[in-house]
Amino acid sequence: MPVVDLAATTVRELNRTLHGLAEGSNETDWEIRNPRGAHAIAAGLDAPLTVTIDGPVGYYCAGMNKLATVEIAGNAGVGVAENMMSGRVHVQGNASQSAGATGRGGLLVVDGDASARCGISMKGIDIVVKGSVGAMSAFMAQAGNLVVLGDAGEALGASIYEARLFVRGAVVSLGADCVEKEMTDEDRIILEGIVDRAGLAGEVSPADFRLYGSARKLYHFNPDHIDGY
């Protein structure tokens, strides 16, 4: 397994190396040592690699990830897996703000808590947070699924479109146009599938979650809803 020590190599060199791997390369498993909170580690990956990072990362780790599996043995800074397209990103610690922001696909798992704006403007990504999420999470969330085993902060799902928000704990408050919904069989199947992929099969029960989504009252601008904006 290639090992890259960021105490001796720059992030730019690391990313260029990962981006430049030939299709079908046998060097698919990488270990990154001494990340020391550096930004944009493993950003823009576009191959089925497995990258393990031994420590905390800064902003935008695994940003816009495609196909790759990125394992972060530590905390993650702002925007981990932002705009992820596919693949899997696992944060073994806590995640800062905007985790999984605008993500379009793939799976982001956070073992700890995720701060404010987790899943903001998400567009198809699945996010599992084993702890709690901060305020304004899933703001303007368009598509995909946010699964929170703990609690959610203020204004969850404000101006939400078609994303599903599954929360097992308490919700401080719902944002504009976000409402609790009855969970259908389809919702339950989706939740079970995500929980399985996150490695939580048998550990949590879909019955313990409540589902939140869009009331769809803001889909067409209406001055009569001015109090809701």
Partner: peptide
């Protein structure tokens, strides 16, 4: 933050 965002976009596009 913008400085770091720019850095990310540069990294993604080498």
């Amino acid at each position: 933050d913008l400085e770091i965002k720019i850095e990310e976009l540069r990294e993604i596009t080498d």
